[in-house]
Amino acid sequence: MTMRHLLAKDVRLVAPYLWLIVPVHALYSIQAFLNPELYFWMNLAAALAWAVAVTTIEWHFDADHFVAGLPVTRAAIVSARYVSTIGGLAIGAALFVLYGHATAAVATERAAAHWQGAPSWATVDGVVAFLLIGFVAVAVFLPFFFRWGLPTGASLFVASAVVAISGGTVVARALSRTTPAGEVLSGITGSLSWSEAVRGCLLALSASWGPWVAALMVLAGAAVLAAVSVRLSIRFYEGREL
């Protein structure tokens, strides 16, 4: 019940800005003509920006103490934040696919020739990669946010992300030279395209274990990450002084 009210609150708070989705994504769709990889990242960035904007709306309006003073537990506030943030990400993924297909419908043959095969919005692995990267970003960001608030938490998150991505790139390159899975990894990391990297990993998983087991493995990994992230965020937020 409380969760429903908290989610309804978020919907009411963002409702005045929802119209912005149409022009922003229309603008991004231009990128789909020119560069599908950039289109993927711009859409993901937009989805994350929306999701983070919803998450941090109380901070922006200095309303943390107002919400925490309502008859709700801090755990409910945190849980609702995860639901609304992941919901925002899912809507972002839907728009990514929708606008991608709309772009494809009006694209000229010359433009489509640049796409080199099925673009990410038209494939299952592309959409799963979109959701997975977004989910990992959200699951890592939220504990930082609930522990330190927006400016400090976001800065620490960005710093950690830079370290993790740089480290990941170095490790992936090293592995590509020394392991049998190097064929996939070298193909991926050669271009440093992380969306392709994730898609490549998903395809490799699917090829090795079959699509259903691969899907289960991805879901199980996401569930573990979500459980750890939610638990940490609740613990941090319950300890925060507002």
């Binding site: 200095d62 309303a63 103490h65 107002f66 003073g69 309502l70 008859p71 537990t73 801090r74």
Partner: peptide
């Protein structure tokens, strides 16, 4: 405390010294 305190707050009305949150609504 979590749940008991939340239930208690349902029976409390409060006014902060700066009540102007969500001012765009």
């Amino acid at each position: 405390a979590s749940r008991a305190a939340a239930a208690a707050r349902a029976r409390v009305g409060f006014v902060h010294d700066s009540p102007a949150c969500y001012d765009y609504l």
